[in-house]
């Protein structure tokens, strides 16, 4: 299956492992990722909060290029990029009066056909194939699936199931043999884009997420958003300082979890780039004596 691919800025920087793990995993699931040529930033929160036309036009350019490349579907793994791209498609369809100004701004025909896909939707659709190809089943491993805001809301852009009770991420987690835990904070906000500008809020919000996942017995959190990952992984030390707990809740991108189950190495999946060590988790997975050490060795090497 050939898919258009929009990595977005974060996947080239703070969330490099998201990109790496996705690219590494793709061939195993017979996915061919065709990156959108010369893509630009989706505009993110800054365009969204300040200029509506800009917030539609920036993604519209990328979508138009993607269409020109012949993509039927465009995969945007970053939840924030997904949200902005899907919104632009939705807005152009729902409000025809936007088409002319957008056309004028981007100097191309506004997009009309390409379907924007989130990574969660894609992997949920591929769940049967994933189940077939599992090499290291994560049998009985308790996972907290964290959607955050942008995958579930607003309802018009939701492609992961219902707004209050989505199931797509759980479907993927089940496909690799793991057990999704029942917990309460999976749709709450982590603090999103305030990571830089309002650290205290992020720590407060992300703390309740990490604590609830822990209370529900999760061995790890799974996310599909670079911002969520940054707040839950990078900020976990600060959270731990507040709560007096240890910063020991690994936070995986969904692609990394699937990659592990497909038998890929920590290096391939970029696990060494995490702040919270994933070594114990990976070691328990392989279930071998001494595996913890070798896994942590491998992870350290990357780091």
């Amino acid at each position: 299956m050939k898919l258009g691919y929009f990595p977005g800025c974060s996947l080239h920087a703070t969330a490099r492992e998201f990109d790496e793990s996705l690219r590494a995993m793709a061939p195993r699931l017979d996915l061919e990722l065709d990156e959108v040529e010369d893509w630009a930033c989706c505009g993110a929160t800054s365009a969204h909060n300040t200029n509506h036309l800009l917030s539609v036009s920036l993604p519209a350019r990328t979508l138009a290029i993607s269409e020109a490349q012949g993509h039927e579907s465009l995969l945007a793994p970053c939840a924030a990029c997904y949200s902005r791209l899907a919104y632009a498609r939705h807005a152009l369809e729902a409000d025809p009066s936007l088409c002319d100004p957008v056309k004028d701004a981007i100097g191309r025909e506004p997009p009309t056909t390409v379907q924007v896909l989130s990574i969660v939707r894609l992997l949920a659709d591929l769940a049967p194939r994933i189940r077939e190809k599992v090499a290291t089943a994560l049998d009985g491993v308790q996972i907290a699936c964290y959607y955050g805001c942008l995958l579930a809301r607003p309802a018009e852009l939701n492609d992961v199931g219902s707004v209050e009770a989505p199931t797509a991420m759980e479907d993927v987690v089940k496909a690799v043999g793991a057990t999704p835990v029942v917990w309460n904070q999976r749709l709450e906000c982590c603090g999103g884009g305030f990571s830089l500008s309002r650290k205290a809020s992020v720590v407060r919000l992300s703390r309740s997420i990490v604590e609830d996942a822990r209370a529900a017995g999760a061995a790890a959190l799974v996310v599909a958003c670079p911002m969520c990952h940054l707040n839950l992984d990078f900020r976990q030390k600060a959270i731990a300082r507040r709560s007096g707990e240890r910063a020991d809740m690994p936070v995986f991108f969904l692609t990394q979890l699937v990659g592990l189950a497909l038998g890929m190495s920590a290096t391939e999946l970029g696990l060494g780039r995490h702040y919270v060590s994933t070594a114990d988790f990976v070691a328990r997975l392989s279930g071998q004596e001494g595996a913890a050490e070798s896994a942590s060795e491998e992870i350290k090497e990357v780091g």
Partner: peptide, 8 residues
């Protein structure tokens, strides 16, 4: 944060 919980 535009988490959209209010709107939902």
């Amino acid at each position: 944060l535009t988490c959209e919980t209010c709107t939902a």
